[in-house]
């Protein structure tokens, strides 16, 4: 069964990425610490005024996740490149999209865990009142990070194997993420302030559409990117 083989490969990649990541905890810890540090710096930039902090909380949070997350994406391929493991990975017969799907899932879990830490710290630092519609807020966080991680994982497949990977990945990735960032920031901001205008729903629809497009397109294009 072809799909069984594919699913086995996806699972193997997820297990491998998370196991190696889990055993060298330094990676996750430093990325999460960076996320928190960025939040603190935003706090300094926005001043001690409580209302200003609350207004800017969602923006600061998403930017912290973006800046810290971008380090995770290159790391994901660094594991392969370090001991020449990418070559054997490419030599296994079968569809290459499974590699992308596995890395996408593993990176989503990685960024998701970091997001939990950053959000909890952000709620405290920015004195955020948790709204009644918090399940919706969780959905926004999940949808936003899927879009972020999918394109991040895709572009890192190229950037990590080019010269100047540190600058190339953000240069390619950040402009592409403008819609997902705008939608996620606006939706979380609306939800945090009670969603008086009922605009969060529209933004969440946009997030869903963005996620569908930018999970499917990289899945289809990954083969062309990884083979060369």
């Amino acid at each position: 069964m072809a799909w069984k083989d594919d699913w086995r490969r996806v699972r193997a990649i997820v297990w491998k990425d998370l196991t190696t990541e889990g055993r060298s905890k330094a990676g996750f810890n430093s990325v999460a610490a960076l996320g928190v540090t960025i939040l603190v710096l935003f706090g300094f930039a926005l001043g001690p005024d409580t209302q200003a902090l609350r207004d800017a909380a969602s923006g600061a949070l998403w930017l912290a996740v973006l800046f810290a997350g971008v380090l995770a994406f290159n790391r994901s391929y660094q594991v392969e490149l370090e001991s020449g493991a990418l070559e054997p990975l490419l030599l296994y017969p079968g569809a290459r999209w499974t590699i992308f799907a596995g890395k996408l899932l593993a990176n989503t879990i990685f960024v998701g865990l970091m997001l939990v830490i950053v959000v909890l710290v952000g709620i405290v630092l920015f004195q955020v009142n948790i709204p009644d519609a918090w399940p919706k807020l969780v959905a926004v966080l999940a949808l936003g990070s899927i879009g972020l991680v999918s394109l991040g994982t895709f572009y890192a497949a190229m950037a990590s194997r080019s010269r100047a990977r540190e600058v190339l990945l953000p240069l390619l990735l950040f402009p592409m993420l403008v819609p997902v960032l705008l939608a996620a920031m606006s939706a979380s901001k609306a939800l945090l302030s009670g969603d008086m205008m009922h605009e969060a729903g529209a933004w969440m629809n946009m997030l869903v559409a963005y996620d569908v497009i930018f999970v499917v397109a990289p899945l289809l294009a990954f083969e062309h990117v990884i083979e060369v």
């Binding site: 394109l151 592409m176 403008v178 705008l182 559409a209 397109a217 990289p218 294009a221």
Partner: peptide, 22 residues
């Protein structure tokens, strides 16, 4: 690579425009 990046970018054009307008 640039073909892949070009396609992704072009797909994103209407989405960027819509999101910014909203």
């Amino acid at each position: 690579w640039s073909a892949a990046v070009g396609i992704m970018g072009a797909i994103n054009v209407p989405i960027v425009y819509m999101s910014v307008r909203w």
